[in-house]
Design a protein around this nucleic acid. Sequence first.
DNA 1: TTATTAATTGAATGTTCATTCAAAAATACT
DNA 2: AGTATTTTTGAATGAACATTCAATTAATAA
Lengths: 197, 197
Amino acid sequence: MGRNSLKDERRKEIIEKYYLVAKKEGLENTSIAKIATEMQINPSLIIHYFKNKEELNYALIDFILEKYLVIYKRQKLAEDDHKSYLIELIDKLFSKKWNTLFNDSVFYSCYAMGFRDKKIKEKFKSLQDALRRHLAEILLRCNDSGAIQIESPEKTADLIYVLVDGAYYYSSLVSEKAEYELKLKDYKQYALSVLKI
Amino acid sequence: MGRNSLKDERRKEIIEKYYLVAKKEGLENTSIAKIATEMQINPSLIIHYFKNKEELNYALIDFILEKYLVIYKRQKLAEDDHKSYLIELIDKLFSKKWNTLFNDSVFYSCYAMGFRDKKIKEKFKSLQDALRRHLAEILLRCNDSGAIQIESPEKTADLIYVLVDGAYYYSSLVSEKAEYELKLKDYKQYALSVLKI
DNA sequence: TTATTAATTGAATGTTCATTCAAAAATACT
DNA sequence: AGTATTTTTGAATGAACATTCAATTAATAA
């Protein structure tokens, strides 16, 4: 008996608003009070659900990193068509989706936080490693099925992601849309040439 | 007549301390008061030299971006030996120097600031563009002298820096020193293969 | 010595911050 | 109706913040 818990929903609402305010004002200028104002609730309610700002930040990082999964959601394709999947994946990795999915300011602020907080750094690292392992796995299968011929799937996967990360880093400075898309296309081309596709 | 100005020296001291405190505490947790305490001076003296925090931040960005030049300081080599210069440059770009020169936390915090401040973004962009143009110039000369044969110096320079940036981004998460150096070596190898050296 | 200029201090401003605590309101079950 | 549980509020805390202003101290040159 007693009142039903709204914990999960409320926590989610709070984090979403946190992200929204951070997009508008910058992460370092976002306070519990501001989130509360935006939600028209009392600041202490946020503390009630998150204990302190540190916990709030952890939840925000999780929220942001979960966005990665969106990119990896696969369209329907024949289960064993590894090569199509690979090409589709490369396509997504070098798509504009990244820039619509992530807010650069918030993203790099979170990344910077990782260097002052071991737990956050670990979150980033384990995600990146998982992504690399996943790609390496795909490459291995493609190799096995003769779809591609590369030497080391692990090293190649690593290299592809270095290209992705480097592309994302530099592209975020490019304001001209046309130039931006042109560059992205070039980088993708290089990635494909690494795979000898 | 009147007292001599210490403006330049003082400003430099302040920025250096700012960077130092930011390294220790994180940029977003660094206040004028903290810098002043560290310097054993009055907070208002910092305002006296920088007007407000915004100006202080601009100066910090300049300070950080100037560090790039250190990497480009050339050892003595024959003036017209373009290929040696190129190899030396690639060597430096993929060296551990980056990580000793820049504090990751402060660097990415500054980078993030760029997305909320046009002036800062411009500073980053124009530096990166200058670096790319410089490398493209070297590549062009090497091409002309027959030292290398590549299609587009501009595109290649761009690609090399995408590799550098991506490598720096990912490597900063790698804590194992041996693994870190191994990766760096691989990325450099790929850069060289792009140049067909 | 005196006038001039710049460095530096110190106190005060008002704002925002994260966090605490107790009290109230809302909801659910018996 | 009554009890248990959770949500939510509201007031209060003390600390830290950027910035201001006037006053003081220190150096320099005439």
